[in-house]
Structure formats: structure tokens, C-alpha cells
Simulated assay, not measured.
Amino acid sequence: MFKLLGNKKIVVLLISLIVFVALMGLTMMRTGMTTPEKMIKDTVAWTQGLFYRPAQSIAGFFKDIRDLRDLYEENRVLKATLSNYAKDTMKLNKLESENKNLKELLEFTERQKSLDNYKYHVAQVLSISPDPYNGRININLGSRDGIKENMAVISVEGLVGRVDTVSELSASVQLLTELDATNNESKAISATVKGKERSFGIIQSYDPATQNLIMTNIEQTDELEVGDTIITSGMGLVFPKGIEIGTVVAKEDGDFGINYVAQVKPVATFRHLSELLVVEVPDAQDTEIN
């Protein structure tokens, strides 16, 4: 009985093997697909296309979102970089400007060392009055730094003004543009001509119309001429001797024709001030002002 069943299994296995080999042979010998196979293949391809196109669109949509997010992040980084570059450029320009100004101040003080024994305090301008008729500025030096009232304040070009009021950490500077002959608080400047120290005059006012300083009390015999350079004479004891003030641009008769009056164009500018020098005369600052 068992032997018979075992023989049947062997026979079935052999038949199945023969059929399988035959089918493989037929398949290899066949050059094309049958009609049912073609229908099945087309149906599968159409179904795949039906699902593939939406899936591809969705995938593309999410890819666009990722690209947009990457573009946004890249744009944010570029903006931050550009902002930092602009800040660094501004700092660089400011440092270059300050470096240039400080070099000019250093060269100026080195030149002056051979001419006088003055001490120069480098001051930064804190504020400038926006009112063109208010010739006052504030600097970052005060009594703690040895600054006193009536000290001369200059730029590398020439005389700018004088220290008016002093606090511990800052000081107010009266510019030459605030000189007024009718104001008792306005300090007149004793002046002379560079190279013609026998010349003498007093600068006591500023004319806003011509933007020139007015020099009076010039004697008829004075050698002052148009084109001369006017400097401080030091005789008034407020401004040290030898500081350039300006250039004579006009000379005319004064009141009653007794003395001459000259218009002096300042060598210093009074706008866009940044670094200034406060002049200290060690042996003269404690002298009583005349």
C-alpha cells in the first residue's frame, strides 16, 4: 500500500517536471507575447501611469516646497551677510577717517613742538548745535582732563574758538562764528600778520553775510595787505601766539577814516567738526585774563 503511494508521488513529480521543462522550452522558442499577455501588460502599464503621474506631481510639489524653503534660508543668510558687510564697511570707513584725522593731528603737533611749548589735548566733538546762529559745540574733555575756560580750541587748519564752560567730563566751545562786538561775553582776539609782527588788530566780530571775521583797530601806517595770513598775537592772553586765523580778503577805511577795517576769511571750517585740539600753555593759563 505505502509502496504504491510512494510510486504515485514519484510519477507525479516526474510528470510535473516534464511539463515545467516543456513550458520553459515553449516560452524560449516563442518570439512574441500572446494577446492575453499584451492586454494584461497594457492594463498594468495604464494603471501604473494612472497612479504615477499624481504621485510624481505630489513629489514635485513637496520638492518645490523644499527648494523654496532652501531658497528662503539662503536669502536670509545672504541678507544677514550683506547687513554685516554694510556694518563692517561703515566701521572701516569711520576708522579710516578717524585714523586720517588723528595722523593729521599728530603731524600738526609734531610741527608745533619746534615752534612753541604748548600742550595739545585731542578732543572728540560730541555735538554741534543745529542752529546756525548758535556757534557752540561740546567736546568730550573736561576739568578732569585739565581743560579750563578760555583755552584756545583749534583744528589742523587753524583757530576754531575757545573753551567757554567746563564740567568734569565735557566742555562747551564758543566758535569764532559767535564773536560779536556788542556782546560782552564774546572775547576779542588780538591778532597780527604772519611775517609782519609789527602789524596789529583786533578780531571782535563775525559777519554771517560774508562769512568773514572783522578785524578792526588797524592803524593807517600798518603794513597789512590783502592776501596776508592773520595769526594770534598772544597779547590778549586768551589765545596763545602764532595760531592761524585766516586770510585778509578786503581792507577798507573804518569809522571816520582814522583806522582800517579788514575782512578775514577763516582758514578753519566750522561744520563737520570731528577731532579738535585744546591748547594748553603751561606757563600762561593761570595768568589773569586782561
Rank of each mutant, 00 (worst) to 15 (best):
Met1Ser: 12
Gly6Pro: 00
Ile15Gly: 00
Ser16Tyr: 07
Ser16Gln: 07
Leu26Gln: 10
Met28Ala: 09
Gly32Lys: 12
Gly32Asp: 13
Gln48Asp: 08
Leu50Val: 04
Ala55Lys: 06
Ile58Arg: 04
Ile58Asn: 06
Asp64Cys: 01
Asp67Ser: 05
Asp67Thr: 08
Glu73Arg: 07
Arg76Ser: 06
Lys79Asp: 04
Thr81Arg: 13
Tyr85Thr: 14
Ala86Gly: 01
Lys87Ile: 15
Asp88Cys: 03
Lys94Asn: 10
Glu96Trp: 08
Lys100Phe: 13
Asn101Glu: 11
Leu102Arg: 12
Leu102Trp: 02
Leu102Asn: 02
Lys103Trp: 06
Leu105Glu: 03
Leu106Glu: 03
Phe108Trp: 13
Thr109Met: 15
Glu110Thr: 13
Asp116Thr: 15
Tyr118Gln: 11
Lys119Gln: 12
His121Asn: 12
Val122Pro: 00
Gln124Phe: 07
Val125Lys: 04
Ile128Thr: 15
Asn134Asp: 09
Arg144Lys: 15
Asp145Pro: 05
Gly146Pro: 01
Gly146Leu: 10
Lys148Glu: 08
Lys148Tyr: 11
Val153Thr: 11
Val153Leu: 14
Ile154Thr: 05
Val156Glu: 07
Gly158Ala: 14
Gly161Asn: 07
Arg162Ile: 09
Val163Asp: 06
Asp164Ser: 14
Thr165Ala: 13
Val166Trp: 11
Ser167Arg: 15
Glu168Pro: 02
Leu169Cys: 06
Leu169Thr: 13
Ser170Leu: 09
Val173Gln: 04
Gln174Met: 10
Gln174Thr: 12
Leu175Glu: 08
Asp180Tyr: 02
Ala181Ser: 10
Asn184Ser: 15
Ser186His: 07
Lys187Gly: 01
Ile189Gln: 01
Ala191Gly: 01
Ala191Thr: 04
Lys196Met: 05
Glu197Tyr: 14
Arg198Leu: 07
Ser199His: 05
Phe200Glu: 00
Pro208Arg: 12
Gln211Gly: 03
Gln211Ser: 13
Ile214Ser: 10
Met215Arg: 03
Gln220Gly: 00
Thr221Asp: 03
Glu223Arg: 14
Leu224Pro: 00
Ile230Asp: 01
Val238Asn: 11
Pro240Gln: 15
Pro240Ser: 14
Glu244Trp: 02
Val248Thr: 08
Val249Lys: 08
Gly257Gln: 09
Ile258His: 08
Phe270Asp: 02
Leu273Met: 06
Ser274Thr: 09
Leu277Val: 04
Gln285Lys: 11
Asp286Trp: 03
Asn290Trp: 02
Asn290Glu: 10
